[in-house]
Design a protein around this nucleic acid. Structure first.
Length: 671
DNA sequence: GGTAACTGGGTTTTT
DNA sequence: CCCAGTTACC
């Protein structure tokens, strides 16, 4: 038994307690926003450990690795296990899948040196292959490579045939059905031959391992308990995996809230949460409705906009002292909105609310553009999460690409990218050079001299430098040294390629620093791909305690988090809800759930902003927006929970012009 | 034939 | 700000 450090059940309410101490039968915890779901789950892990379940026989699947680490740390702290002792297993579906795929690579027919392809690289591969599949040309609208990857991924994640996916989600692509099917076949074949594994493959391979007659039961038998967080956001592939892990439902706990299902675009379906009770008749459902986070006026709005269509009725209530009603600020235009937000942040800061207790949550990353400018002008520090991520920056991709080649020289995409980085090498010559290297053959690097000889004279010095650098990098023993050597290869290329090379090299320097002390470069790269830094600041290590900054985040990335004060800009039809999503009732429903997630992040104060004009949308595209506060979110009952505030524009007063003309004379300069 | 430099049009959300 | 399409140079 363990020493009890603090009672794991301290402060739990009855519902949380019954979830934590539930026996072995299938358990569904329907947890409204802010109802202490993480606490309940953590307490359950602690309870299981206390009952003598071995730590390593518990598997915790969460949405982000951060959530898993957080929960594992809290659970082990609760039961007082010493650090370094056996810990529960856990991580995201993809990260855990990666572990199994790496462990059983040989059984899956993969070389140990396989590399994990991020969606951007998958798109590059699609581009490389599409030429052979009648998917190029300018006469009719062709799907972009990112769209191709999306459609492919949707087929995998929903396990629906391409024909159906195109009909429902990409009707304008239907004429290309045959070509796309061909392309997708070639895509999977090429991934196989080049030892490339994309995100979807990780899940497919894990499922295949679990489905194997002998290995499957053995893998499932490693665990007594499987706990899955955010179950409303799993797709059918993940459901298959969970069912293989717990075929009888014994020892299965899932936690979720169908009103917070916001990943439909990724193949997730909240119906999986409801189907638990249908699949296993002995499923226990525990509902958490007591909100520990927000004040009641915020919850009044949340309850008013909570979607009810699927029947999980749930009414959030709070014991906290009541506070101000959420405000709906109607602003003149988007610059006025940005000023109002900055005003609000400073005003709250003056009242003693730290910047880190304040967040600006947006539907789409670019919705905060003007706010970011306004904050910068007023010297209010901020950090942005979600949206364009660090790993998508061109120079970071260049680095990761080059580093991968050390382990997997058969990665054509990587060669293609690295070669094009050289002055004088474009797509055509890069393709020719890749052909010279013959990826897939025994010793790829041995073909390099031939390739260099075949390249234009002006490029040979640089190419040789890259070649020698890579060969030298391969001889380094530690991951840190290897990363350093890769940076050495890239430095001249990045310097020549990007006008702002200094800043980019600084980024890469930080990346290389974070690789110091790692012993496995390949694993580090895979982890970087699966769980990339969420903001550029993340690489600098844990922030200093005295560092204070406002958080700007997409609502998607803000899931599970909370702040004292939350600002929601652009709450107008067309922006939020996004006009991209309004084509279908399902799309609008998801926008509504997203709004619900945004609203319920606020502990104390919430302000929604409705700019009445969008001057920064160019020439006449304004008509896409109705400029009304998001009417589709607010019915009369919801409006009644709001304090409406009109922010009238303040016109700057300037004195009238003088009677005598004001002149500008440049003539002296030219004398 | 192939690359670089420029121009104009478009932009959801993420493991 | 990124991509595609165009044009001017090697």
């Amino acid at each position: 038994m363990f020493d009890m450090v603090g009672a794991w059940d301290e402060g739990l309410d009855d519902a949380q307690l019954s979830a934590a101490t539930h026996g072995d039968g299938p358990l569904v915890v329907v947890a409204g926003a802010g109802t202490g779901k993480t606490r309940a789950l953590t307490a359950r892990v602690a309870w299981l450990l206390e009952r003598g379940v071995a730590a390593e026989r518990i598997l915790l699947l969460t949405f982000t690795r951060r959530a898993a680490d957080d929960m594992l740390a809290r659970a082990t702290a609760l039961i007082g296990a010493e650090p370094g002792t056996r810990r529960p297993r856990g991580g995201t579906f993809h990260a855990v899948a990666h572990r199994y795929v790496a462990a059983y690579a040989a059984s899956l027919g993969l070389p140990d040196s396989f590399t994990v392809l991020d969606p951007g690289e998958a798109a590059d591969l699609m581009d490389l292959l599409r030429g052979q599949h009648a998917l190029v040309g300018t006469d009719v609208r062709m799907p972009r490579s990112a769209t191709l990857v999306e459609a492919y991924s949707r087929c995998i994640n929903t396990q629906r045939p391409l024909r159906e996916v195109l009909a429902v989600d990409y009707p304008w692509c239907e004429p290309h059905l045959e070509a796309m099917a061909d392309l997708f076949r070639a895509f999977t074949a090429r991934k196989r031959s080049a030892a490339l594994v994309d995100f979807d493959d990780l899940l497919l391979y894990w499922r295949a391992l679990l489905g194997h007659a002998e290995l499957g039961p053995e893998l499932a038998g490693l665990f007594d308990h499987v706990l899955v967080d955010e179950y409303q956001d799993v797709n059918s592939l993940q459901v298959d995996i969970v069912r293989s892990l717990r075929p009888e439902g014994r020892g299965l706990t899932v936690v979720g809230d169908d009103a917070q299902a916001i990943y439909g675009f990724r193949g997730a379906d909240a119906r999986h949460l409801h189907e638990m009770t249908e699949r296993w008749a002995d499923t226990t459902v525990v509902r958490l409705e007591h909100n520990f986070r927000s004040r009641q006026p915020v919850l009044d709005l949340a309850n008013a906009v909570r979607p009810v269509e699927n029947g999980q009725q749930l009414e959030l209530y709070s014991d906290r002292p009541p506070g101000a009603r959420p405000r709906l600020a109607r602003c003149h235009d988007t610059p006025a909105e940005a000023r109002a937000i900055a005003d609000g942040v400073l005003e709250a800061h003056a009242r003693g609310v730290a910047l880190r207790q304040q967040a600006i949550l947006v539907r789409a990353a670019h919705h905060s553009d003007l706010v970011e400018i306004e904050l910068s002008v007023r010297r209010i520090p901020f950090r942005k999460y979600g949206g364009l991520r660090f790993l998508e920056a061109a120079h970071v991709k260049d680095f990761v690409t080059a580093a991968r080649l050390l382990d997997n020289p058969h990665d054509e995409i990587a060669w293609f990218r690295l070669l094009r980085l050289h002055q004088g090498i474009g797509p055509a010559r890069a393709r020719a050079l890749v052909a010279q290297l013959r990826p897939g053959s025994d010793n790829v690097l041995a073909h390099w001299p031939d390739a260099v000889a075949a390249a234009p004279a002006a490029t040979r010095t640089a190419l040789s430098g890259t070649f020698d650098g890579l060969v030298a990098a391969r001889t380094r023993s530690t991951a840190g040294e290897r990363a350093e050597a890769v940076l050495g290869v890239l430095r001249p290329l990045v310097t020549a390629r990007y006008p702002d090379a200094a800043a980019r090299l600084e980024d890469l320097g930080r990346l290389v620093d974070s690789a110091a002390g790692i012993d496995d470069l390949r694993g580090w790269l895979a982890e970087l791909t699966l769980d990339p830094p969420r903001s550029t600041g993340d690489l600098a290590g844990p922030p200093h305690l005295d560092e204070d900054y406002v958080v700007i985040s997409t609502i998607h990335s803000a899931k599970g988090l909370e702040w004292s004060i939350v600002h929601l800009p652009h709450v107008i039809d067309g922006a939020f809800p996004s006009d991209m999503a309004l084509k279908s009732p399902a799309g609008l429903a998801e926008e509504r759930r997203l709004f619900y997630v945004g609203v319920t992040r606020a502990r104390d104060e919430l302000t929604l902003y409705a700019p009445l004009r969008m001057p920064h949308h160019r020439h006449g595209r304004d008509d896409r927006h109705s400029f009304a506060p998001a009417s589709r979110f607010f019915d009369a009952a919801a409006m009644a929970t709001l304090e409406i505030e009109e922010l009238t524009p303040v016109r700057e007063r300037v004195p009238a012009g003088p009677a005598t003309p004001v002149e500008v004379d440049l003539a002296p300069l030219w004398r």
